[in-house]
Design a binder for these strands. Structure first.
Length: 415
RNA sequence: CGGGCCGUAGUAUAUCGGUAGUAUGCAUGCUUUGGGAGCAUGAGGGCCGAGUUCGAUUCUCGGCGGCCCGACCA
């Protein structure tokens, strides 16, 4: 894409109503627009990142055999009353409204109850199981305090997956598979080195632990304790003598870290199925409640976390897999403009996603903007290039500069 | 939901109970052109409401909005 056609602009200064690093950088670079507290729109560059994160997640969900759906945002009050989660005393993040006829309707902050209800139409026998579905959904939550830019919003994108199983063993086997798949997702978005599977309390629905995926990050809301072996991590809420005893570990081997919860998985057993009446006949014709587990990843929070963890003083540093473009092509003078145009076309013909800074600006501004936007590979075309026919390549993350031909660069990017 | 801070051009910031200034961005022109260039000219501003006052952007109250701390947090 030509940058002269990109409608967003970069800003030199941080907006006064944002303190968090993710919001400041994403706003300055033109990835997001704040509509109100905790509510953001995603602009072309931001949407590019969202799409890439979704793509990674979708690929990983596909490995698990999950099918994608989209459930409605408007939700039926009666379904939630069955599990006693309609009242504002029980769930304090509800957005609710009323139809013209006066009956109440909820805006989806979670989809567990509706999907259970929906599956009653599709699951009746053990032969129908297991069922795996996921969706990317805008969740609406009436947070009393939105904060930290896109880390905690009133409207945000979440991937949620649900697994319906005949047996507890099957449910657990899948649960453990998802842990590995999730770790892969966080590796691919560039956070593998700082993301831990963390045991946490199960909340209202599970008696034992649930698992969270926590990314070490100063702006995180949670405190987790990471074991020195680097494998075990515990949420502060269960970091007590009882837990330590159960796990046979020493308190002194843990270090406390601030972390952002980027994913969360729950094993509900048959509890919800019993509440909502979802059952399947086994081979003996007996009706048995279906086992449920659910799996969430906060897509927009994940994007914010990447910015928090990987940016530097000059701007954002996107990992290759989620960057809105692979290459940022900068032309520095009119003398080399036609040469740069050719290079732009060459990238396009090789299907390499390229943002072409064809604006009539000084070099310094282009460099500063490129640093801020954070595309992984920068290709600079200045007067020098005319003679050498070699491209100047700068890596955003390391700052290292190399010279190479367009052919070799394309080979490397494709490789 | 408790507590704190805040609301001034597109953005970011000053000052002041009596013509609201600066930077940046924007527009035009000339010069410049490898790390946010220089000069000139121009357009552009007090969140809303009430009160105090001769006069309010400034002081008081209310509203609306924003950020932070805490509480909360599938």
């Amino acid at each position: 894409m030509r940058q002269t056609e990109l409608f967003t602009k970069t800003r030199r200064e941080a907006p006064k109503d944002e303190i968090s690093k993710n919001a400041i950088l994403l706003t300055r670079a033109g990835f997001i627009h704040k509509e109100m507290a905790g509510v953001y729109s995603f602009l072309p560059l931001g949407l590019g990142v969202i799409k890439n994160i979704k793509k990674i997640i979708a690929e990983e969900m596909e490995k698990l055999g999950s099918q994608e759906i989209i459930m409605s945002t408007l939700q039926n009050k009666e379904i939630w009353e069955k599990t006693d989660r309609w009242s504002d005393e029980k769930v304090d993040v509800w957005f609710k409204s009323t139809f013209k006829n006066g009956s109440e309707v909820g805006f989806g902050w979670s989809h567990e109850e509706p999907i259970m209800e929906m599956m009653k139409s599709h699951i009746s026998s053990y032969q129908d199981l297991p069922v795996k579905v996921h969706q990317f959904q805008n969740k609406l939550r009436n947070e009393v305090r939105a904060k930290s830019g896109i880390m905690r919003c009133r409207e945000f994108i979440m991937k949620d997956m649900y697994y319906f199983a005949l047996t507890e063993e099957d449910n657990l086997t899948f649960y453990n598979m998802v842990i590995e798949v999730y770790l892969n997702v966080f590796r691919r978005v560039g956070l593998g080195h700082v993301t831990f599977v963390t045991s946490a309390s199960g909340g209202v629905f599970t008696d034992e632990f649930s698992h969270e995926f926590q990314t070490i990050c100063e702006s995180g809301e949670d405190n987790i304790y990471v074991h020195k072996d680097g494998k075990l991590a515990l949420n502060e809420e269960i970091f007590n003598d009882k837990t330590l005893e159960k796990l046979k570990v020493e308190k002194s081997d843990f270090e406390m870290k601030k972390a952002a919860e980027v994913g969360n998985i729950f094993n509900f057993g048959t509890k919800k199925s019993e509440q909502l009446g979802l059952s399947a006949s086994n081979s003996n014709g007996e009706k048995k409640p279906v086992f449920l587990s659910s799996y969430g990843i906060g897509v927009t929070r994940l994007m914010g976390t990447v910015v928090e963890v990987l940016s530097d003083e000059k701007g954002i540093v996107w990992p290759k897999e989620i960057a809105p473009f692979q290459v940022h092509l900068l032309v520095l003078s009119d003398k080399v403009r036609s040469f740069a145009d050719e290079i732009y076309q060459t990238f396009i013909s090789h299907r390499i996603e390229v943002l072409y800074d064809d604006r009539d600006l000084r070099a310094g501004e282009k460099f500063a903007d490129a640093d801020l936007i954070g595309i992984p590979t920068r290709v600079v075309v200045g007067d020098k290039a005319l003679k050498s026919k070699k491209l100047e390549i700068k890596d955003r993350a390391t700052g290292k500069t190399r010279e190479m031909t367009i052919e070799n660069l394309i080979k490397e990017l494709k490789g």
